[in-house]
Design a protein around this nucleic acid. Structure first.
Lengths: 160, 160
DNA sequence: AGCTGTGATGTTATACTATTACAAGGCCTC
DNA sequence: GAGGCCTTGTAATAGTATAACATCACAGCT
């Protein structure tokens, strides 16, 4: 069952603080470090529910006094992805904060082509693909499921 | 209902000639041109069921006497994708020939991380995602569904 | 034939995305 | 305080993709 819609207005400040709290706790539990760059990177991604390119993140980090070279951003982003605090959107070559951090899941996304908002759907890749794979003898290790389209707010208001 | 498995050995020559014949016919029917670069690009993709990067395709085109600059390859590849004769694999930033050319479909892929073979599953994105989208009010226009893993031939032969 | 519109190809230049390799610092344990 | 390990920083480069412009081929028209 989903948390909330991501497209709809919501209490984003609590959205952010919850995610950071979960990340702090998960890192402590796993014995990995949510260092300043990494934490700041997560904060930047959390600012809104849209995907950001690595270089946009990098620019933000640089103005915050961190290193300004690509590996600085890529390392932090890859760390967040590895730990499940962020996801990479293949279609956009970009990154979003995870909407369900701390919980292992096979993410699926809905990407609005107008406003860039990315919402996460819980399960989705599901049945059809797993069935095809089974019948082909293919062993799935990881899935990418991304839908592009229009979010509720960006759809033409009326048809008649 | 699928055609054949793509992972299994098959009569690839007929696979190729069928695809080219279908492409020729579809272009004629639609009033678009399968020009020499475009046709050659499709032939190159059809050589095997693996994804190729645009620059690899470009290198092949160049040795065949076509232009050697990126737009030459990207334009031909985008044409093939637009016409449904090839697909872009987002995960790999690469392209494959379509396994069901001429038929409109929402493709889903199984990508072997060892041998690079890409097989197409017929339907897959399906139910879960469409349901999430409907409940969120999101209007899907296009889907990306890509599974990575091991094809039958690349799986460790035995466990015990 | 000459004109014109359209679509295809080619090139230049540049933008965007990502990684490899190496240097330096912190911190922990022994 | 020496050796390991992890993290950060930088330099250099690799890989992917597009914008902008010039040219050519061809169809349709006069």
């Amino acid at each position: 069952m989903p948390h909330h819609a991501d497209f709809a207005p919501h209490d984003h400040a609590s959205c952010v603080s919850t995610a950071l709290r979960i990340a702090d706790a998960a890192c402590a539990a796993r014995g990995v470090q949510l260092t300043p760059v990494r934490r700041r990177t997560l904060e930047i991604l959390l600012e809104n529910h849209a995907a950001m390119g690595a270089y946009d993140v990098l620019a933000r980090l640089a103005t915050d006094g961190f290193g300004a070279k690509p590996p600085v951003a890529y390392r932090a982003l890859n760390f967040l992805v590895d730990q499940g605090f962020a996801h990479r959107i293949e279609r956009l070559n970009a990154f979003v904060a995870c909407a369900l951090p701390g919980v292992a899941h096979d993410p699926a996304f809905m990407i609005c082509r107008t406003c860039g908002t990315v919402a996460e759907a819980d399960n989705a890749p599901g049945v059809g693909l797993r069935k095809s794979a089974a019948s082909a003898g293919f062993r799935i290790e990881q899935t990418v499921v991304e839908a592009q389209g229009l979010c509720p707010a960006c759809q033409p208001e009326a048809a008649p």
